[in-house]
């Protein structure tokens, strides 16, 4: 189980990027918070700032009582305990599925892990894929492995950047079911970026509009 207690996520960031200003200010509770807006509104940049891959010009990012950024704090990505599922999966091409899954698991503090490799493979139905190479996976399979890799690192929240965009309609339904189960069974708070109304209507507990 991810988290017994409800964890408040507080985000207030601003960043000038290529001549325009990306700003967001919102609080997110348990469940799935959708950052909803048109393509190019800076939604991915906001996730990157939360993950520590992009440094905000000002603001703060807090999860529960931990400050990730602001007030002189700027934790590196590896210290943030944030799982990130990228749009393109971004699996390590030189490691088999099993080694992709265990990458973050092995690095996590044993006390921070809340899922075992067996639990994750059962949860995602990826047992038969363990010895495959990432380049041999379909889009839906790769995205399941990417989700498993993020969960196994023992994150406190999960960031998902348009995880369905590279999938066909049938696979989309499958992965949406997985996301609902992460939300409801694992009770892991999720920040979810999308520009698709139907996805957001089905998955979101709360919606934060980004851009106009």
């Amino acid at each position: 189980m991810a988290n017994g207690r409800a964890m408040a996520i507080e985000i207030d960031v601003e960043k000038r990027l290529g001549g325009r200003v990306i700003a967001a200010r919102f609080a997110a509770g348990p469940g799935l918070t959708a950052l909803f807006g048109p393509s190019g509104a800076g939604k991915t940049s906001i996730l990157n700032m939360v993950a520590g891959l992009l440094r905000p010009d000002r603001g703060h990012i807090r999860i529960g009582d931990r400050t990730l950024f602001g007030e002189g704090v700027d934790l590196p990505p590896e210290a943030r305990r944030i799982g990130y599922v990228f749009q393109d999966g971004r699996l390590f091409p030189h490691r088999r599925v099993r080694a992709n899954l265990t990458y973050g698991h092995a690095l996590a503090d044993p006390g921070d892990r809340w899922m075992s490799l067996d639990e994750a493979t059962a949860f995602l139905g990826i047992g038969p894929l363990l010895d495959r190479w990432p380049r041999s996976l379909s889009g839906g399979e790769a995205q399941r492995v990417a989700i498993g890799r993020a969960l196994l690192a023992g994150p406190e929240i999960l960031l998902m950047d348009e995880p369905l965009s590279s999938l066909d309609a049938a696979r989309r339904g499958d992965i949406m079911t997985v996301i609902e189960r992460i939300r409801d069974e694992l009770k892991l708070p999720i920040l979810y970026v999308s520009h698709d109304r139907t996805e957001v209507d089905r998955l979101a507990t709360a919606v934060v509009p980004i851009g106009e």
């Binding site: 590196p76 590896e78 943030r80 990130y84 990228f86 971004r90 030189h94 990458y103 993020a150 690192a153």
Partner: peptide, 23 residues
């Protein structure tokens, strides 16, 4: 090398040096 893979490694708990060595 796709540098975004290094970013992915960082979010999974790898420090700079570990990400360099393993990715």
């Amino acid at each position: 090398i796709d540098r975004r893979l290094e970013g992915a490694a960082r979010t999974l708990g790898a420090g700079r040096w570990h990400a360099f060595r393993t990715v």
